[in-house]
């Protein structure tokens, strides 16, 4: 029982990681796009759980709201809209993939080896700085908001323009072509 309590965070992390990886495998493996989308939903929620473990509570909430809420609904909506049928993967692609996968895997293993070697120097900080607002310990959401609207105000405004452009672009691309000379 004591062991369980001591290692509670690890147990939760490994469970969440297993769910996230199973969901990611499901995205690739499921033939039906609806099943793949629901599998991706599992990954999103598990990643949100990992965010909580990493003391990023605000981002966990944003992950659930934006990804599991907004993006997932968008995906399912489009899947229903276009009636995406199962597309058989031609074997030639899988064959062509094997050397690429081996090379990519070796490259990534080298990269992550370097990264782990560099990152494993020292324990993580205690996380108090992630809750500090102007010297007072408040909460993660307040701290992120403080940093976002004070230190990163210009990027925040630029990103809002990006969102506006994306919204207009989606509307323009999604609409039917009008009778004569309609812009596509």
């Amino acid at each position: 029982m004591t062991w369980f309590l001591v290692h509670f965070a690890e147990i939760v992390f490994y469970s969440l990681a297993a769910v996230a990886l199973a969901g990611a495998v499901g995205v690739i493996a499921f033939r039906s796009p609806v099943h793949a989308a629901l599998s991706l939903l599992g990954t999103f929620l598990a990643v949100a759980g990992v965010f909580v473990l990493m003391q990023a509570e605000f981002l966990a909430a944003v992950q659930v709201l934006v990804y599991a809420g907004g993006v997932m609904v968008l995906f399912l909506f489009v899947i229903m809209l276009v009636k995406a049928r199962d597309i058989p993967d031609e074997p030639q692609y899988v064959r062509r993939l094997v050397p690429a996968a081996v090379g990519l895997g070796a490259l990534l293993a080298a990269l992550v080896g370097v990264g782990i070697w560099a990152a494993s120097g020292g324990l993580p900080a205690d996380g108090a700085a992630l809750r500090m607002v102007a010297g007072a310990p408040l909460g993660n959401t307040e701290a992120v908001g403080w940093s976002l609207y004070r230190d990163y105000l210009l990027p925040f405004e630029v990103v809002s323009i990006v969102l506006l452009v994306a919204m207009i672009g989606a509307i323009v691309m999604g609409r039917k072509e009008s009778g004569r000379g309609g812009a596509a």
Binding site: A56, L59, V71, L148, L163, A166
Partner: peptide, 20 residues
């Protein structure tokens, strides 16, 4: 964490454009 907020924003925009 602030940059992760930006990444989530861009991901949402990318999903909207891609699905369009």
């Amino acid at each position: 964490q602030v940059f992760a907020v930006f990444v989530i924003t861009i991901a949402a925009a990318e999903a909207a454009i891609g699905l369009g």
